[in-house]
Structures are given as C-alpha cells and as structure tokens.
Design a protein around this nucleic acid. Structure first.
Length: 288
DNA sequence: AGGCAGGTTCTTA
DNA sequence: TAAGAACCTGCC
C-alpha cells in the first residue's frame, strides 16, 4: 500500500539513530531507500519514494492496527522541532540535521533487553548480538504471498525475506541457558538477561503495569533489575515506554554537555520533549 | 599487543 | 557517598 506522510520521516536517520537495532537497509534494484523493519513479530518493508510518499509491503489492516502506531505518526515532530531555541546554535544545527528522526513506539520488553545488551558495545556489535539472539530463540516469520510479490516487483533480493526471526519473548529467552545466551555474544550480560527474563516471567516485574507509573517511579522500578543502571533504564523508558521526556546520558551526550552546555542543559525549556532533543544531539554527534 | 566501545556491579575507603 | 577495578567480545 502507499501512504502520504507529511510529518518528519527519514528512514535512514531513524535506522542510524541508535534507538532501534532491527532496521536493515536493503539493496533493491531501483530505490536506495528501502528498509526492512522487524517488530512486533512482523516484518515491514518500506520504501521512500520522495515527496512524502511511502510504499509499504503490509496490508492496510496491518498498517492501521500496527505500523501507523509503531512509527508514531500521530505525534507532530515538526512542531517539536519548532520549540528549539534560536539562540542555541548547537541544538538548532542538530535539529536541522536530525530532521526526520521520530521516536518509534517499540515493544517494552524488546527495548529493555536490547539496551541491557547495548552496554559497552558499539551499534554494529549490538545489532549482531540481537540478531543471533533472535535466530537462537525467536519465532520464525513467514511472508504472505502479497508481500513476496511486493518484494519481487521492486527487485529486492530473496535473502532479505528468508530466515527472519521475531524477537524472543520472556519465555523463549529464558529457554536459553546461560551458555546459549553467551553464544549470542552477550558476554558478561548473560546473567543480567537471564535474571531479567526470570523476573518478568515470575511476575515480580510487571512491564505492562509499569505503564501506569510516572516517570520517576518508572525509572526507579527499571533500575531494580539486575544489570540495569540509569542509562539503560532511561533508554528503556524513552524508547520502550515512549516517555519522551527521558534524556539518556551516554558517553556521546556527556561530550555534548561538557562541550556546549557548561552551564547545564535547559531541561525546563524542553519539557516534555527532552528525549527528542537528546536524539537530535546524539545524531549530530555521530554525523559531524 | 593493548586499548576501547551507547555501563553496571562489586569492592574498598 | 565516591572512586576504581573487573567484566565478555570484537575490532582496530
């Protein structure tokens, strides 16, 4: 199906933003901007045709019931960008260069596990580790005939639609032994992952209940998990719970703060959108 | 070969 | 409360 999306949406920038790890650029014949997204036990191929037009491999029903929400299309990112203070040179530049980034509405569990894995890893290593984990424990995803036809019409090589695996749920993840987890390049994080799965499975940590907590409560609940410190908890809250005011501070953002905001970053000015500003700043650091 | 990468835990003072 | 060491793994 084809949709017109007038608000910010730059597939490449989102794929490189570091919030998601299962967006893969495909080598289609004609269009250099065709991405494969695996989320929610499904796969979406999305092609940017320019002029705000996007071709999607899914049915209209799947778009309405899942992907529209996943892409957070009801949030106005142009408006959020307009709040950037003109006298803040760095943030103005970052928001301009990062125009097109959105904060996806990703699965809570997947975000939590992904950011536990992310500690002391670079993005390619995180992606590789998650991919192994999905192959080892995730459910296989099969494409409908309509989707296969869609890919064929665009000359997308078969390799992009074969051997696709969903992100493992808590039970599937717990089904892997510690050795099995280590085989997915998770290293010393394997015990963190195992215990987190155990806590979620047993119900002692209830992620859907945590939706009802306020930001401060959510952060401290998440930090109770073994292997989850402030950075991972903030990323989980921002990306997995869509709490757009969280501002995860990693080494890159630390550099931004000590270079451009010696007096401190004006969080009050950007409440409740600090997390979006963080994404622009992170992207700017990665691309300048 | 040794250092470092989207951190967190554990130990020690 | 705060600083420092240790930790898997892969890639310079």
């Amino acid at each position: 199906m084809t949709v017109e999306i007038k608000d910010d949406l730059d597939l490449q920038k989102i794929a490189e933003s570091g919030q998601c790890f299962r967006w893969e650029k495909t080598e289609a014949l004609d269009n250099p901007v065709l991405y494969r997204i695996i989320a929610g036990g499904r796969v979406l191929f999305i092609e940017d045709r320019g002029e705000c037009v996007f071709d999607l491999s899914c049915s209209e029903n799947d778009y309405v019931s899942f992907w529209h929400d996943y892409l957070d299309l009801d949030t106005d990112y142009r408006k959020i960008r307009s709040y950037v203070k003109k006298d803040d040179g760095f943030l103005s530049r970052a928001a301009e260069n990062g125009k097109g980034i959105r904060i996806l509405r990703q699965d809570r569990w997947e975000s939590l596990i992904s950011f536990i894995i992310s500690q002391r890893k670079n993005i390619p290593a995180i992606r590789a580790s998650i991919e192994k984990l999905c192959r080892a424990a995730g459910r296989k995803i099969t494409l409908a005939d309509g989707e296969k036809k869609w890919l064929k019409e665009r000359g997308v090589p078969d390799e992009y639609s074969e051997e696709l695996y969903a992100f493992p749920d808590p039970e599937e993840l717990y089904g892997l032994s510690e050795e099995g987890l280590k085989a997915c390049s998770t290293g010393y994080r394997a015990p963190y992952l195992r215990r987190t799965a155990e806590d979620v499975l047993s119900g002692s940590m209830d992620l859907s209940y945590m939706e009802s907590l306020n930001d401060d409560e959510l952060l401290s609940e998440l930090m109770k998990l073994y292997g989850v410190g402030k950075k991972v908890a903030s990323c989980t809250a921002l990306f997995g719970f869509h709490r757009l005011n969280f501002f995860p501070v990693d080494v890159w953002i630390e550099r931004v703060l000590e270079t451009h905001y010696i007096e401190g970053f004006p969080f009050e000015s950007y409440d409740p959108w600090n997390g979006v500003m963080q994404q622009y700043m992170f992207y700017e650091m990665q691309h300048s």
